[in-house]
């Protein structure tokens, strides 16, 4: 469904002495995403994982390489075609609050993609929005509020409702559960797992957290310094990771239980 081929993204900036420097944020990345599978991309800060998300959604242009959606090159699509294609390609971003326009009520925020991608009358629209709100397990009162009046978890749920409103084939979650309280995070991940069965969407989950990656996806890509260093299909356990960087990440994970030396 999605094919990324030799994708590169360079940023040019200037260093302290005014010399031109280039940073290779995404470096020769290739992978294939198949329908109805779940993927997670793991990387630490500066690995280029967010840049990759912005390239796939065409928010930013790549320096070189190809992104093909349903065998069609994205860079060859016209502006309008690309805009309509976004109905198939949704993204949920890290910060729920900033992804919602502070001056627009929740109802209209959720309505936006529906109005952009389909033409239904007001009554159907209202029904659909209320239905979506229930799907993300929020009370209907929130529709009449502004983003800053909601909690972080509620904002996140609204962003999810917005993304699934157009029944996309593919949803990218860019650090979508980081920064949330652990109990809220768990609930949202479980919600996403339930929704996936219902929507039949493909998830592409970008996270710095191997725990989250393993919880939500079967296929895991590990990214470091702009490159994909390891790709594992149908992961079963931590021992499937072979690359030394991945193993270092696993070793750094916090223990599930306290060690015995702490018992005093």
């Amino acid at each position: 469904m999605l094919e990324v081929k030799e994708l590169c993204k360079q940023y040019t900036g200037r260093d302290k002495k005014g010399r031109k420097t280039t940073i290779q944020a995404v470096d020769n990345v290739s992978f294939i995403v198949e329908r109805n599978k779940s993927y997670a991309l793991v990387g630490e800060s500066g690995s280029g994982k967010s840049t990759l998300a912005r390239l796939i959604t065409h928010i930013e242009m790549s320096t070189s390489g190809q992104i093909k959606i349903d065998n069609k090159d994205m860079s060859k699509m016209g502006k309008r075609e690309l805009r309509m294609k976004r109905a198939d390609f949704q993204m949920v971003m890290q910060d729920g609050q900033s992804s919602l326009d502070p001056r627009i009520k929740i109802y209209d925020s959720i309505a936006e993609p529906i109005r952009n991608f389909s033409s239904i009358n007001k009554k159907e629209e209202k029904e659909k929005i209320e239905n979506l709100t229930q799907k993300v397990e929020l009370p209907l009162e929130v529709l009449n509020r502004f983003p800053h009046e909601l909690s972080g978890g509620q904002q996140k749920r609204i962003c999810i409702a917005r993304a699934i409103s157009v029944r996309p084939k593919f949803i990218i979650f860019d650090e979508a559960v980081s920064g949330l309280d652990v109990t809220v995070r768990k609930k949202i991940l479980d919600l996403l797992l339930r929704l996936r069965n219902e929507l039949k969407s493909t998830y592409f989950f970008i996270t710095h957290d191997i725990d989250v990656a393993m919880y939500i996806a079967k296929n895991i890509l590990v990214m470091k310094d702009g490159q994909i260093v390891e790709q594992i299909e149908n992961i079963k356990s931590f021992s499937d990771f072979k690359h030394e960087y991945s193993q270092m990440l696993i070793k750094s994970l916090l223990p599930k239980l306290p060690s015995n030396t702490q018992r005093k």
Binding site: T57, S98, D101, R103, E112, A163
Partner: peptide
């Protein structure tokens, strides 16, 4: 630079919609 501008692009708003409905009111 704010997130909601990117988010509006993703939900299919055109540039004119983004400017008139989101950026200018803000």
């Amino acid at each position: 630079k704010k997130g909601y501008v990117t988010a509006s692009k993703i939900v299919g708003c055109s540039d004119i919609q983004i400017i008139t409905r989101h950026i200018i009111p803000n």
